[in-house]
């Protein structure tokens, strides 16, 4: 669906995106993740055919974004950052205008507008003027606009920014639902959102792709996919050296000292060290009060991958 090769984009000398390579297959929900100013919006604008790349090849739905921009735009639904809308139009009027603009046939126009209003729960504001709507509703009007012509690909730039938790949940469900039929690429810096909705995550930083994998695999990348929390009755320093000698253990960190020492143990990638740790504890005769596995979050993966 999307094929990006060696994409670069500079703004008067400043390189916003450098040598990006990635592809998105039909039916995928891909999260585009990165700190502010990483080049997310720039990439999305290029994908939507709004800005041309400085260098590289970008194919969307089988068309080149520069030479076949019009064909690309027929196949995508794009929701820009901050959702610019005509403030003087009514919701219904706006959606009908956009549907006509996007070549929805006359016979299907009413049905499509009704469908997207239903999907985005806009029924109760259909007669309101867009300028008077709250941020949450505006966001949903933008989303409704993006999918009014039933595009193959949805490009959503920060679809949940500025929404309250209920609305975020609603939009998330909607995206998941849409993902059954459409290909979706969305950018965000809310990590839990990506974890819950996306099949694949692209982490971008300083205009480069740092990682591209499923959320589950990405968290495994981070120091073996998690750590072990251990609380034992033992001298902390002694326990630390002894634990560090156990095979597959990469690092031991003392988090609290005292009668009961608390330790955090990081294993090598993919290794399960719980059995070995227990054997050591039994051999040394330490009292064990707690042993728990802590999963790495996507947040940790994100921080680790985007650190300078």
């Amino acid at each position: 669906m999307i094929e990006v090769q060696n994409l670069s984009k500079s703004y008067s000398g400043f390189r916003a995106v450098q040598n990006l390579n990635f592809h998105v297959n039909r039916g995928e929900i891909v999260g585009f993740l990165g700190p502010n100013g990483a080049g997310k919006s720039t990439t999305m604008k290029i994908l939507a055919g709004y800005q041309p790349p400085t260098d590289g090849q970008v194919n969307v739905a089988g068309f080149d974004v520069v030479s076949q921009s019009l064909d690309v735009r027929r196949h995508i639904g794009y929701m820009p950052e901050n959702v610019p809308l005509y403030n003087d139009m009514r919701v219904d009027e706006f959606l009908r205008f956009r549907a006509r603009l996007k070549n929805v046939p006359k016979a299907k126009l009413k049905e499509r507008v009704e469908t997207v209003k239903q999907l985005c729960s806009l029924k109760d504001v259909e007669r309101k003027i867009i300028g008077t709507l709250s941020k949450g509703y505006r966001q949903r009007v933008g989303l409704a606009d993006a999918m009014v012509h039933d595009p193959d690909l949805l490009i959503l730039d920060e679809p949940t920014i500025g929404l309250d938790p209920h609305q975020i949940r609603a939009v998330r469900e909607l995206i998941k639902d849409l993902g059954k039929k459409h290909t979706i690429i969305l950018s965000t810096h809310i990590l839990s959102e990506v974890e819950m909705t996306c099949n694949r995550v692209l982490i971008i930083n300083h205009g480069r792709i740092e990682a591209s994998d499923t959320p589950a695999n990405l968290t495994k990348l981070v120091r073996g996919g998690g750590s072990l929390r251990l609380e034992i009755k033992a001298p902390a320093a002694d326990a630390k050296t002894k634990l560090a000698a156990v095979p597959d253990i990469e690092e031991v960190e003392v988090t609290a000292e005292g009668e009961w020492a608390q330790l955090r143990i990081f294993s090598k990638p993919g290794a399960d060290i719980r059995d070995n740790v227990y054997q050591l504890v039994k051999k040394e005769g330490w009292d064990l009060r707690e042993m728990a596995r802590e999963r790495a979050t996507l947040e940790e993966a994100f921080v680790e991958l985007t650190q300078d």
Partner: peptide, 14 residues
């Protein structure tokens, strides 16, 4: 100013 040009020119119009 409103940024709506981006929305307008990403629709299939010339």
């Amino acid at each position: 100013k409103m940024g709506t040009i981006e929305m307008l020119l990403t629709a299939p119009v010339e």
